Computed example of a mutant assay.
Amino acid sequence: MGKPNTQSISRKWLNVPYAAQSPAQQLDIYLPETGAGPFPVIVAIHGGAFKMGDKADGQLTPMLEGLKRGYAVVSINYRLSGEAIFPAQIQDVKRAIRFVRANARTYKLNPNKLATWGGSAGGHLAAMAGTTGTLTDFDDPSDPNVGQPARVQAVVDWFGPIQFDQMDAQFRASGKGRPDHDAANSPESALIGKPIQEAHDLVKRASPATYISPASPPFFIEHGTEDPLVPTEQSKLLAAALQDVLGPASVSLTLLEGAGHGGPQFNTPENLAKVFAFLDKHLK
């Protein structure tokens, strides 16, 4: 997917720092072409195995469709695993959410209507932001906006890894995919700073499922049935765990038949209409 053309978007602020520890801690804000706001906010979180990707790359394209539907889009960068290991990434996401709330009036944003949306590693972080929204575990006391809530009102998780130390076993059981997540140089091992099978407590701390509670927001989860990088079982187990606590009406799981790790089936008008119907329900 090519880089989206954002030059035609007239109302935008690019490379806005939300923290000062790293050049990576920046975000871009896009507003609909018309309307005074305040606009409900899609917080777009890019994927890239926790080690690559960018807030303005092609992964942003489906989120930008929200501009036509009355949403502001805030696309964030965060420290990648080559710069800082877990929990720096979720700390950055939460700092960005708090920055949005603290500066909502300046940018015509609705501080009470936020959703996180990401794919792959971005899906993981979107889910983490959702389930840890009322917790202080990943707060940075140096954040000047730490008094702002970090809770979001909805989560769109596209094929995010959830429980790192189960992924290879799930691939072997299904006969699909590439069971190489347990390797010492896997993206997940690089993220937490050690081989994941030697750090089960740390892996548990890095799992969105660990923090599911009645305070968790509604989730919209999609995963391709032929995903070679993240087992479909990751999303199925997360959805089941969320449904046990929140009830089936608050959790949607769709398995896109034949789809891989992302791809055109996620970005069709028909599929995006389902995503935005979910967001409309909870943010409008």
Rank of each mutant, 00 (worst) to 15 (best):
I90W: 07
A72Y: 13
Q265P: 00
G133P: 10
Y30Q: 02
S174A: 09
T132F: 08
W13Q: 12
G53R: 13
P17I: 11
L253H: 02
G133F: 08
V251C: 00
R105V: 08
I212E: 04
N5C: 10
A127Q: 09
A44H: 15
A88N: 02
A20T: 14
P32K: 15
Y107S: 10
L80Y: 01
K194W: 00
Q26L: 13
E226M: 08
A102F: 14
R69V: 14
K94E: 03
I97M: 05
P111W: 09
Q89L: 12
S174M: 03
V74M: 06
G119W: 11
K204C: 11
N145M: 00
P228F: 07
T210E: 07
F171H: 03
Y211A: 08
T210A: 04
K236T: 14
P214W: 07
P4C: 12
T6N: 08
R79D: 13
R205M: 14
A249V: 11
A183Y: 14
T268D: 00
Y211N: 02
A273Q: 12
T232K: 13
T254V: 07
Q91T: 15
G70F: 03
P264M: 07
L67F: 01
G2M: 12
A183G: 15
L125W: 07
Y211C: 00
G147K: 06
M63Y: 13
P195V: 02
Q89A: 15
T268M: 13
D157Q: 02
V275L: 01
A127D: 11
T268I: 00
V155S: 03
T210K: 12
V155N: 06
Q25P: 05
D201H: 08
A150K: 14
P23I: 05
G53H: 10
L114K: 15
A36F: 05
I29C: 05
G260L: 04
T34R: 13
K204Q: 09
K236Q: 10
R95H: 12
V74P: 00
G70N: 04
Q91L: 00
A56C: 08
A72W: 03
F219A: 00
F171T: 06
L272C: 08
Q243K: 15
I76D: 09
I192A: 11
G262C: 08
P208A: 03
T61Y: 06
F278N: 11
A104F: 12
V100Q: 15
G193M: 01
T210N: 08
A84R: 11
Q265C: 02
D143S: 05
Q21W: 07
R151S: 10
A24G: 01
A154M: 09
T210Y: 02
A24M: 09
F159P: 04
V245K: 13
F138K: 01
S186L: 03
V100H: 05
Q243L: 12
A154R: 04
T132L: 04
G48D: 05
M63W: 14
S252L: 10
K12M: 00
W158Q: 12
S250A: 15
I42S: 07
V230M: 12
D201P: 04
S235M: 09
L67S: 12
G48S: 07
N267F: 06
L237Q: 13
A121W: 15
Q234T: 03
F278D: 04
D182A: 12
N15M: 11
L64T: 04
D140K: 05
G47M: 08
